[in-house]
Design a protein around this nucleic acid. Sequence first.
RNA 1: GCCGAUGUGGCGAAAUGGUAGACGCAACGGACUUAAAAUCCGUUGGGCCAUAAGAGGCCCGUGCCGGUUCGAGUCCGGCCAUCGGCACCA
Length: 850
Amino acid sequence: MNSERRKPYPFDEIEPKWQAIWEERQLFHGPNPGEKGFDPAKPKFYVLDMFPYPSGAGLHVGHPEGYTATDIIARHKRMRGFNVLHPMGWDAFGLPAEQYAVKSGQHPAVTTRENVAKFKSQLKRIGFSYDWQREINTTDPRYYKWTQWIFLQIYNSWFNPKTKRAEPISTYRGADPDSVRLAYVAEVPVNWCQELGTVLANEEVVDGKSEVGGFPVVRRPMRQWMLRITAYAERLLDGLDELDWPEGIKLLQRNWIGRSEGAEIDFNIDKSDQKIHVFTTRPDTLYGGTFLVLAPEHSLVDLIVTEEQWPAVRDYRERTARKSDLERADLSKDKTGVFTGAYAINPANSKKIPIWIADYVLIGYGTGAIGGVPAHDERDLEFARKFDLPIVEVVQPLAEEPALGFIGEGIAINSPIINGLASAEAKRKITAWLEERGQGKRAINYKLRDWLFSRQRYWGEPFPIIWEGYHHHSLGESELPVMPPALEDYKPIGTGEPPLARAKEWVRYSEKAVRETNTMPQWAGSCWYYLRFCDPHNDHRFVGKEAERYWMGGDKQGGVDLYVGGTEHAVLHLLYARFWQKVLFDLGYVSKAEPFQRLVNQGIILGEDNQKMSKSRGNIVNPDDVIEQHGADAFRCYEMFMGPLEQMKPWSMRGVEGVARFLARVWRLLMTENQRGEWELSSKIKNTDSDKAQQKLLHATIKKVTKDIESFSFNTAISQMMIFVNAFTNVEVIPLSEMRSFLILLNPFAPHIASELWERLTTKFTDARGDITEQPWPGYDERLLVEQEVEIVIQINGKLRDRIKMSIAATEEEMKTAAIANPKIQKLVSGKNIGKVVVVPKKLVNIVVH
RNA sequence: GCCGAUGUGGCGAAAUGGUAGACGCAACGGACUUAAAAUCCGUUGGGCCAUAAGAGGCCCGUGCCGGUUCGAGUCCGGCCAUCGGCACCA
């Protein structure tokens, strides 16, 4: 006897069978315009998953959560007559493959190929209906050729502040085009990670440590490629309003962009021609400005510091430079700083105020200089108290509270020009006053920084750039793709020079020119992959015009109609991709300014212990094991049945079993086991009419499942299907057409079992043709859902007291009369005064008594 | 510190301002079986009353406190807790 427990239904046979059929018939290929099989009458629907980084660990249960949701939508939309684009690919440049290469000497491409193969087989095993003809891989030269090409478009563009659009650099009339390109080189303080041997984007640094690996990150000035994303700050912010995204994600992006309105004020320096520009959101507090603070790295420091103060300033700057971001941001520590010896003139009252440097002022925000207003800013107050600087109150709070330390809006005091004005008015007036005198202007500031776009890594896209001395030039389109050289050693050099610099032959481009040796960050490939999916094999263009217009165009709905993925990309990928899309839009290459019309985030799946899954906790669930035991359909359905998609929720193996039982019940509803232990179609299935109650249940089920799919309530859709199946256990006759309709509803969730049962029905009955995937989605008849009799709830003062059955047609008056006449109610209200009686038709009667 | 999300049985969760706990898990009881598994049937928020039994009845209950309403898990105000994001952003 086989010791292995018998499978409750033969998912291990039918799942591979249907996966092979789908592949062989290429059922899920969505044709492009002009392609064979393209039907222009069908509306398009582009449903996209965030493509994975194919790590060596393989798929975890978090990936298929979003993927199952999009698969349900994709299968549903196809059955509703849409031409569906549902692709999958690989975001395969990245650190793990490179680090493995450093250790093993194996080329990252080999590791990547293996990992992709594993991921792909795992995804296929779950039965996702991807159009595999459109598979892409960001590390494929045929793909990154176009990533490099897009970089060249960015490099060869500038942002025209008049039109607020990117334009070809040839339209720039200034002297130095290199100073305005959207891709430029700058010597900037960057996040340098010694351990990784590379610089990182702000977005890749978490709590002063690298997001990958958790290694310390320090600030260090280096020459790097930057993308001028700040030029798009306003448009990136405004564009959010029109998007159908979770408000929380929009907010994260808004906060990341961090728009502040205020003024830039020019302070003259005593005994110097230099001016210090200061950004403030509170120009109304100018009279309270009793000192200035520059960031230690501020370029004016060298010019204004007095001889006497120079040693202290130099010392302080050195100490600051050594600090990691984490140390510098440590709020618990005291404020530190050094007096420069120089003084500025407060333009409001012409008073001389001292200029300090302090590391609580950041070089990266605003102008890297602030006006210290200690009475109305916590940090300035702390600083002033520590160094005994004067404090002047200039805002009177409206409520009874002390003015000192008050940071809200109130009434201006001790400020001759604006005394008595409310803060908002005071801001306007003082800004206008400054503007008249050429001492300042209205200004908007963003937290968003330009995007540090170069990395000192091997496993990334090389830049299509060459250098002649200190001048960079772009390579021609015909020279793409620029492929990385073969290397023996992938290790970072450690000095900040990229590993590509080792390939001396490759670096030498010509007599005079050398290649850029930095590579692009991992985000580059994912910034435009959704475009490539529209036309993945095009050798002449990054995406064909017609294909782009068809899939990414459209009127109200546009671009990717539905994008599903985790919140971890809220400010990284999703911001970068929007930025590239806008540049390409400005240059006329794409139809829409926004790539992702609708975004849905799936929640994190926790381990059974309610903790985040991790190797160290040993609570990781491997999808392969689940599929082995319960089948892909059960796996899919469980992932959807766990709870609302967006919500964080713990895994439960018991829960999987429950859903597996449901699918087994579906199987046994239509199949019985004969003497020889073979499954055959149940003889109870008859091609006859269903009874009233069954009909009603079916139509209620169609309605609920349809609506729930549309609203992403997959868990309740499955509940409804369970109710449907439960109603048919132990019935004598199983009506064929009801089962047909039910299988269609089940198909997006559990496509293998639905396909198999459909096929088995079709071999015996001739009422339908073709595979289940070709069937149209069933409609429902609202009239069948209407009850003849409804249960009316009777409440007294809002409390449930009794229920009665009444005809659906009962009038409000009849309901009221029946409720009051009810003996139980009579007993309860006797001796009391009946007041208002609220009647909700078909639902309830509430009697108010006192 | 600021911003956001979430709080409902033993557990995952359902509930257009109108019967709280659908559906599933777990648990318990029963049928089938030599036995177990599987399957099927039933019970299952808490407390109290009642009864030979079967019914039946009452009170409390959606994090806490208040409010609006005939009626609040749902709306409003204030708190608490958990999770996530940002964090000296001038």
